[in-house]
């Protein structure tokens, strides 16, 4: 009944070996990650790509929620800037969140995440916008006075050149002093991805 070609890789996963070489994942992990990708990318339109609506749906279980950060993360994943994520973009970006990924990659990614206007530095107004968005997203309520004092303190510590902005070098020394700021850049789940998505073995090309 079937014309199964077991050696043919699924669409979007044509070259798992190259992706494995260029990320921290093994070939099996790339294949397992593809299972997650398939699930997310078929939620609204089964076209082999994750669009913003599907990304939001996977993150929040609703596509209605407005989130500055979900948008920002999506845009950073979308290295081809075409509004959709192919598997390769997804795998390369997620790789940065692996516990074994180099800390410099995490520092760079987090800096870009917070550099909303992509000017090469994080300015006070951007930090305020992000704090306000975080509070709104989590339903917390802080007075403007308290928000300003939190930002004052943060800049006192981070902005060592006293020019009102945080550049990459200042960001790096801040997060090295406070590693907890990079906590959300590491997903322990990625260590167990082959057991979370075991169905990749049905077409796997490798035994590792």
């Amino acid at each position: 009944c079937c014309d199964l070609d077991l050696h043919k890789q699924p669409k979007g996963l044509e070259d798992p070996e190259i992706l494995a070489r260029e990320t921290v994942f093994s070939v099996s992990e790339i294949e397992a990650l593809y299972e997650l990708f398939k699930k997310i990318s078929s939620a609204v339109v089964d076209d082999g790509f994750i669009n913003k609506e599907e990304f939001q749906l996977a993150l929040f279980k609703t596509s209605q929620k407005e989130s500055l950060f979900a948008d920002r993360v999506f845009d950073l994943f979308d290295t081809k800037h075409d509004g959709i994520l192919g598997f390769e973009e997804f795998a390369r970006a997620i790789s940065v969140f692996h516990p074994n990924a180099p800390i410099d990659d995490k520092i760079e990614f987090s800096f870009q995440l917070y550099d909303l206007k992509q000017q090469g530095f994080i300015e006070r107004q951007e930090v305020k916008q992000m704090v306000v968005a975080t509070l709104a997203e989590s339903g917390m309520n802080l007075s403007d006075e308290i928000i300003e004092s939190i930002i004052d303190k943060t800049f006192e510590e981070a902005d060592t050149k006293h020019d009102g902005k945080i550049d990459k070098e200042e960001w790096r020394s801040l997060v090295l002093r406070h590693p907890s700021l990079l906590k959300n850049m590491t997903l322990q789940y990625l260590k167990d991805i082959t057991t979370t998505f075991p169905s990749f073995v049905f077409y796997s090309q490798v035994d590792d």
């Binding site: 997650l36 997310i40 996977a58 993150l59 929040f60 989130s67 500055l68 950060f69 979900a70 948008d71 920002r72 993360v73 997620i94 969140f97 995440l113 917070y114 930090v127 992000m130 704090v131 968005a133 975080t134 509070l135 997203e137 989590s138 802080l142 308290i146 004092s149 939190i150 930002i151 303190k153 943060t154 510590e157 801040l174 406070h178 907890s180 700021l181 906590k183 959300n184 997903l187 322990q188 789940y189 990625l190 991805i193 979370t196």
Partner: peptide, 25 residues
């Protein structure tokens, strides 16, 4: 006390930055 919290610590708790959700079945 929130007044001594680092702004980035606060920001990094945002739901939109918790990609772990993607891996929860």
């Amino acid at each position: 006390r929130p007044a001594v919290m680092n702004a980035f610590e606060l920001i990094s708790t945002s739901q939109g930055l918790n990609l772990g959700v993607l891996f929860e079945k």
